[in-house]
């Protein structure tokens, strides 16, 4: 395992990207991860505001026709290696909004590469933490 990967697993900076059609609950649970009960800063996870600093994109919600180009653009702006985590049922599979007339015909994981899926509606903060830990664990193998 290289030092580079090891450092990445110890200091994942995440950028939160709400892809559009979402009920906002995943977004709030992501913020919840930062607050005293879960405090992901313990693991070096920091929520950052510039996608240029991102090591992981946390994507929530379905991609709508209107946001699809933006989502793609943001992914292109992220410095590689960058991981994408689909948070919640909508981001994983378009969930119940699959048949909406505004849903982008191409789901998130065909629009940009997705490295991990955290299902749930919304996933509990513990689930998100577990998902990210698993993803980081898979890097070191």
């Amino acid at each position: 395992m290289s030092l580079k990967i090891k450092a990445l697993t110890k200091s994942p900076w995440v950028y939160h990207l709400c892809a559009g059609g979402s009920c906002n609950n995943c977004d709030i649970e992501i913020l919840d991860c930062l607050t005293p009960r879960f405090d992901v800063e313990r693991f070096g996870v920091t929520l950052i505001g510039s996608v240029r600093h991102a090591d992981a994109l946390l994507v929530s919600g379905i991609v709508t026709k209107k946001t699809a180009p933006l989502v793609k653009q943001i992914w292109e702006q992220a410095p590689k290696p960058c991981l994408v985590v689909a948070i919640g049922g909508c981001a994983c599979s378009q969930g119940m909004f699959k048949d909406c007339y505004t849903a982008n015909p191409v789901p998130l994981d065909e629009l940009i590469p997705v490295h991990a899926y955290v299902p749930g509606c919304p996933p509990k903060p513990e689930t998100m933490i577990a998902g990210i830990v698993k993803l980081l664990g898979s890097l070191t193998k």
């Binding site: 030092l3 450092a7 800063e41 070096g44």
Partner: peptide, 23 residues
């Protein structure tokens, strides 16, 4: 009311950034 990062956190941050793509 939080625990905060472990002591090596700033080092990990810097080493990690060194391994990232520069855009």
């Amino acid at each position: 009311y939080r625990l905060g990062p472990p002591w090596f956190q700033p080092f990990a941050d810097v080493v990690k950034l060194l391994g990232k793509e520069t855009i």
